[in-house]
Design a protein around this nucleic acid. Sequence first.
DNA 1: TATAAATAAGACTAAAAAGGTCGTATATAT
DNA 2: ATATATACGACCTTTTTAGTCTTATTTATA
Lengths: 135, 135
Amino acid sequence: MLQLSKKVEYGLIALRYIASKVNGCVVTTKEISDKFNISYELLAKVLQKLTREGIIISYQGVKGGYILARKPDQIKLSDVISAIEGKSNISLVNCELGKQEMCNIFSTCTIKDPLAKIQNIINNIFNDVTISEIV
Amino acid sequence: MLQLSKKVEYGLIALRYIASKVNGCVVTTKEISDKFNISYELLAKVLQKLTREGIIISYQGVKGGYILARKPDQIKLSDVISAIEGKSNISLVNCELGKQEMCNIFSTCTIKDPLAKIQNIINNIFNDVTISEIV
DNA sequence: TATAAATAAGACTAAAAAGGTCGTATATAT
DNA sequence: ATATATACGACCTTTTTAGTCTTATTTATA
């Protein structure tokens, strides 16, 4: 609980590796999965999600691969998490994002508001930290 | 992901409710589970864990129940989480607590250290916030 | 233009975690 | 004695996460 998923970990490792390749040369999924011993297919899906969200750019076909779509300091940790896990999944308690009707203790729940404050602090951290700081 | 578990939520709700009862009268599991519509058995186990960790005190038998073992401002959010989830479960990445031999990408992992910084910030928040602030 | 190397994507399976239930034991006020 | 409470382990179900498989598409180049 309260842990980054493997997918997010893999995504961060991959982004850091892609960022380390200067001169804009592309990086293949295989290269990363070999280097870090990560399941090729799983990593591939993570990279596809990052592509869909515009965090990296893909080149298909022979000599294809990925490059960063923006500079490392323009890629927030929160961007990466929400790209991989979905926007709604950065919340300490699951009744917080207007989905109150789905929370069975909503009317009597007393911890929502105070936890929201903590949530904000954590969100701010994730918004502040970028790939360039994943040194 | 990166979400407090229902158990922790229930624990916090219960602690807040117990704290709200002044004059030191005991609170039963049933009272809380009825009030907040929480599974009785699940809540009971959560309260038992909080008892084992010395966060609340239990009285068995008729007229039994629970009271806080310390003042609300002496009960940290981190105490509650680790009592319910286990000490080792407050970590963003699971290779961080000396269990490095269990992490299959340990030798090549590059994100461990930077995430540890974020981890420290979050830990500090959880250490700073107490039940008394769960207003 | 055939081929090999690459991404794209959905379906599926397996494993792990979370949530929840049940049965039995023990303590205790009345 | 009995009813009411906690204690606790075993178990089951559901959900989430992790990982695999298959097929399609794109594209550089021999």
